[in-house]
Design a protein around this nucleic acid. Structure first.
Length: 253
DNA sequence: ATGCCACGAATATCGTGA
């Protein structure tokens, strides 16, 4: 089973890319972020025609997450239970016995800002909820745009802003690992300067000036099934791309 | 310091968020 995560930065604009990519990769499950569309505008017919079911948690203009799957989707949860939040950033569901949690983590804007404080509060709430979720679902994948580059090797040397690489954000990432999860990408040898996001400006993609902020964490019960984990840069090379590339983990056994 | 992009309000550009 292949599970992917992709921040599409507007599902409406990126739908042709997504449909082409689904046909090309044949992934079983895709977690999407930054839909930027309300549920009533979700392109369900096109996605179903491509052979996928979908559950989604959208809002106007900002945020919005979805899980697409070729097989049955059950036990859907929207948003972090008990965490009062207008922003649609979480959807979770079970597919083929695997709990899939799709998250669009807050950007945080700048260290010390109000949005940064919200990011840290949100991360704490997510961690507390996942502790409980993992107690019920041993096999769990946390997929999404974390807006955190966990280590120095995950950030281009040209990155001088603190946001995405600050100590509190990295501590929050490690707190997720400490629940009993592993970064699937780092289970394998990877090229140096492997990134999943590049700013649209300054020819950042061509110069490979980016960050690795899109991740797939797997619980210990799933770790033994992980066969590969790759960043697929192909969609980032197309006309009118998302600023993020999809990341794919392959589970077997 | 910044050049991009998507969106909505408004109807040309501009503010917001990323």
């Amino acid at each position: 089973m292949k599970i992917a995560t992709w921040n599409v930065n507007s599902l409406k604009v990126r739908l042709p890319h997504l449909l082409d990519w689904l046909a090309a990769t044949q992934v079983d499950v895709v977690c999407l972020q930054e839909l930027k569309c309300e549920d009533k505008s979700f392109p369900l017919a096109e996605i179903e025609a491509a052979g996928y079911r979908a559950v989604f948690n959208g809002q106007k203009t900002y945020n919005g997450v979805a899980i697409l799957s070729r097989s049955e989707i059950t036990d859907v949860v929207r948003n972090i239970p008990g965490f009062d939040d207008e922003q649609r950033r979480i959807i979770a569901a079970t597919v083929n016995g695997v709990r899939v949690v799709c998250g669009y983590f807050p950007n945080g804007q700048a260290v010390g800002s109000e949005k940064f404080e919200y990011k840290l509060r949100w991360l704490t709430a997510l961690t507390d909820w996942l502790r409980a979720e993992m107690a019920v679902h041993a096999k769990l994948v946390l997929a999404g745009d974390y807006n955190v580059a966990p280590e120095d090797r995950d950030a281009t040397p040209e990155w001088h802003d603190e946001i995405h690489v600050s100590v509190p954000e990295r501590e929050a990432f490690r707190a997720l690992l400490a629940l009993g999860m592993t970064d699937a990408f780092r289970m394998f040898d990877q090229a140096e300067k492997s990134y999943s996001w590049w700013d649209y400006r300054m020819m950042a993609f061509r110069r490979n000036v980016g960050l690795r902020i899109d991740h797939l964490l797997v619980t210990d019960a799933l770790k033994g099934e992980v066969k590969s984990c790759v960043i697929d840069k192909a969609p980032r090379k197309l006309e009118r791309p998302s600023d993020h590339a999809p990341v794919i983990v392959e589970l077997g056994g």
